Amino acid sequence: MKNGESSVNINKLVNAANIHVNLGGVSMEMNPQKVLDMETVALDDTNSELIIIDQTLLPGETKYLRLTSQGEIWTAIYELQVRGAPAIGIAAAYGAYLGIKNSAAADYDAFYAEFKKVKDYLATSRPTAVNLFWALDRMEDCVKCNREKSIADIKTALRKEADDIKAEDIWVCKSIGEYGLTLIEPNIGILTHCNAGQLATAKYGTALAPIYLGHEKGYKFKVFADETRPLLQGARLTAYELKSAGVDVTLICDNMASMVMKNGWVQAVFVGCDRVAANGDAANKIGTSGVAILAKNYGIPFYVCAPTSTIDMNCATGQDIHIEERKSEEVTEKWYATRMAPTDVKVFNPAFDVTDAPFITAIITEYGIAKPPYNKSLTEIFAKKDAAKK
């Protein structure tokens, strides 16, 4: 494999994690203490493969998928084999690079036309996560900025841009974790919903970053993880991650959050997000808004951990965020040996909901903490980001 931060040495990874390699892919018997050392999304440039952990199989099996075609990459994003806004963005960036890597275009215009087809196709995989479009737009900007170079040099620039997106995500998540730690004390109870951890990002996660960094410092957090119906990301992924990392985690059904809050067991809520509007409304996994309302009722601070890549200042309010509705089978039969709902019953299955800004105590970004009014504070965050780039 070629050198580069985002390339994966699969042999090293296999040895470190005690996983077995089969002809059908890489499946696992994993050393649980090594979970945070494993890469969620990686590039094998030599073999032109995007390597991801198939998150639909966790926690029972950890399997690495090697994706080569655009159809495979599109399906992996749509079917949540790779999920979490930052991880989706990284996968899309590498997918765009792989989709154009072997282009035989002889001139820029032909190359750009091919790239646009790849970009537009990948963009149809998920409608809500703004990181998908943000990453693809960055890749397109890279093509345009290098139009005077040779086609070979443009391809090299695209590879570097995808690597940069991944490397930046690691820094972003650690920064969010450090800012998040300033808002809490050691030994408190924390509740989280869905999965915004290592599996959703390149490293640490967003909502779980303060927990992981605090754990490294010896803070004895007690974490309550909502199961997160209907796809159970909290039960399958968050509980799995935290337990593997040695964090004190208790899994609860979504409808138990009120009780643990009322009992005084929770002093802060941390969640991730897929898109934040300019007014501070935040779209996250379905059920998040209910948690925010409960937290407000019990006087518990509710924090949204949001990389600036997920903040859409062109989106005025949460009403402008398109909410993906997924297939009914996820509710009626996905996790059951036999169907648990009446045949042909109507099902409403939105993948996300929007938490209104008044229920959000603060939005934690890699460039600082935004507090109400968010139109003002988020603008200041982006000013700080722009200044840092100069």
Rank of each mutant, 00 (worst) to 15 (best):
S6N: 12
T56R: 12
K119C: 05
P186S: 08
E185R: 13
V35C: 04
S48W: 11
D274I: 11
Q81G: 01
N22E: 12
T361G: 00
G280F: 00
I51L: 15
V8E: 12
E178Q: 12
P86Q: 09
Q198R: 13
G197H: 04
G368L: 05
A209Q: 11
T156E: 15
E49F: 03
A388K: 12
P32E: 08
M1Q: 13
L57T: 13
G246P: 05
T361C: 00
S377F: 01
D353G: 10
G180Q: 02
I53C: 02
T228A: 14
K371C: 00
W171L: 12
A337E: 12
G280R: 00
I184M: 11
L58Y: 09
A370G: 04
G180V: 02
A167C: 09
A337H: 04
G214C: 13
V271G: 01
C253S: 14
I151Y: 04
I300S: 05
A157N: 09
M259L: 14
V345T: 09
A351D: 04
L58T: 08
T365S: 05
E216D: 14
N15A: 15
D137C: 05
F111I: 06
W134T: 07
I293H: 11
F133L: 09
T361D: 00
N18G: 15
A257W: 02
N22M: 07
T288F: 05
T56H: 06
I293E: 13
V8Y: 09
Y94W: 15
T308I: 10
G177K: 06
I73T: 01
I190H: 05
T62I: 15
P307A: 07
I252P: 06
S7N: 15
A152D: 14
R326D: 10
A96P: 11
A235Q: 03
K217C: 09
S244V: 01
A268E: 01
N375S: 02
R159F: 13
T317A: 03
S6Q: 13
T379N: 10
R147V: 04
I100V: 15
K116I: 14
L65C: 11
I364F: 00
Y336V: 06
T62W: 03
A123H: 06
T361P: 00
E380W: 01
Y367Q: 06
M340V: 14
A337S: 10
N18C: 08
A105H: 08
H20G: 08
G99D: 13
S150P: 10
A278F: 01
S125Y: 02
R326F: 11
G214L: 12
V143G: 02
D120R: 02
Q33H: 13
T46M: 13
D226Q: 08
A16K: 15
S244A: 15
K12D: 15
P373A: 00
